[in-house]
Amino acid sequence: MSPMHADAPVEPSANGQAEASRFQVHAYPLALRITGSALQVLMTADLLCASVLVVTGTFTGAMNPKPPALAGWLALLALGLFGLTRLIRWLTAATFSVEPSRFVLQRRGDRFEIPATSVESARVWRLPMPGAGVSLRMKSGRGFQYGLRVADPLPVLEAMGKEAHHPLTAFAHARATVIRRRWSHVALKFVLFPLVPTVIMFQLNQRITYGGPFAQYRMYGLGPYLQSFFTYWIYFTALLVLFASLWRVLSELVAFAAAWISPGRARGVRRFVEVASAVLYYGGFCSLVAWRFLQ
C-alpha cells in the first residue's frame, strides 16, 4: 500500500462508495502539547545561539581559526531536542474520522467515539504550537481531552461542518498548501548552498595565506587542509541560518497580517512571500558576499 499524505483525507473505497472522511493527525493532551512546544522553542533558541557563537567566535585573528567548542555542544543538544520532538510526534500519531453522526479518534490502543451533536465548536489553535491544530469544545462547556495537531485544519473543519472562515484557518491552510517541506530542500539550503561562498573564500584564503590552492595541504597534510575547509563551511552555514531566520520571521509576519486583513487572499500572499523569501535568501546572500569581497 502506498503511504498516505500526513494530513490528507482517505480516498473513496474501490466500490465507489465514499467512506467517512479520515485524517492522519497527532492527538496531544495539554501537558504533552506544552512539552512539545517548549522543546521546539528551546531547539530554535539553541540553534540560533550556536550560529551566533560560530559567526562571532570563529575568525578572531588566530592563525588556524576553529569554531568555538561550545557551539558544537549546542549543536549536539539541538540534535537531541529534535529527536525528542520526533518521539512525541510518533507517540501522538492518531486517526480522526468524521462520520455522519459521530467523530472517532483512534490512538495507540484507545478509541474515542464522540457524538456529533455533543460538539459545540471546533476551534483552530490561537497559538500554533507545536504546530497548527484544532480543539473540540463540548456542549457541556468542557474541552475534549486531546487537541488535534494537523498541518491544514481547513479540510478537517469542513468535514465536520464547523466554522472554517477564521483568519487563523486561512493562515494555516495557505502555509500547509504552499510550503512543501522536503529534506532535499533543507539539504540544498543549509548543506549544499553554503559550499558556494565556502569554496570561494577558502580558496582565496589558501592563495593569500599559503601561496596556492593546495599549499596548506603540501605543507601540513590533509588533516589541517580539511579542517580549514570545514571551518569555512560551518561559518557560512551558521551565517545562512541567521540570514534565513531573519527572512522567515518577516515572511511569517507578512503572511499572518495578510490572512487577518483578507483571508481570501492568504494563499496568494503566501505564495508571493515564499518566492520573495527564496530570492532574497539565495540572491541576497550572494550579493552580500560579492559586496564584501569587492570592498
Rank of each mutant, 00 (worst) to 15 (best):
S2Q: 13
P3W: 07
M4Q: 15
D7H: 10
A8R: 04
N15V: 00
Q17S: 00
E19G: 00
F23K: 11
F23N: 14
H26C: 09
A27R: 01
L30W: 00
I34L: 13
T35S: 10
V41C: 08
V41F: 06
M43H: 03
M43D: 05
L47N: 07
C49N: 03
C49G: 07
A50D: 06
A50V: 02
V52H: 08
V55Y: 01
T58W: 08
F59P: 05
T60S: 08
G72C: 04
A75R: 03
L77G: 09
A78L: 02
L79E: 07
F82Y: 04
F82G: 10
L84M: 06
R86P: 02
I88E: 12
I88V: 12
T92K: 02
A93M: 04
A93K: 03
T95H: 08
F96K: 02
F96V: 01
S97H: 04
P100M: 12
R102C: 10
V104F: 01
L105T: 01
R107Q: 08
R108S: 09
R111G: 05
E113T: 10
S121D: 13
R123Q: 11
R123D: 13
R126G: 14
L127W: 05
V134T: 05
V134I: 08
M138D: 05
K139N: 15
K139Q: 15
G143V: 01
L148V: 02
L154Q: 13
L157K: 06
E158L: 11
G161V: 02
K162L: 12
A164M: 05
A172E: 09
R175E: 15
T177A: 14
V178Y: 07
R181P: 01
R182Q: 11
S184V: 09
H185R: 05
F190K: 02
L192V: 08
F193T: 09
L195N: 08
V199P: 04
F202N: 14
Q203W: 11
N205L: 13
Q206D: 14
I208Q: 13
Y210I: 03
Y210M: 05
Y210D: 10
P213Y: 10
L222E: 15
G223K: 10
L226I: 11
F229N: 09
Y235V: 03
L239S: 15
L239D: 11
L240R: 02
V241S: 06
L246V: 08
S251N: 03
A259L: 14
R265M: 15
R265Y: 12
V269I: 14
R270K: 14
R271T: 12
V275Q: 12
V275L: 14
A276M: 10
S277I: 00
S277W: 00
Y281R: 07
G284M: 09
G284A: 12
S287I: 06
S287Y: 10
S287H: 08
A290Q: 05
R292V: 12
R292C: 14
F293A: 15
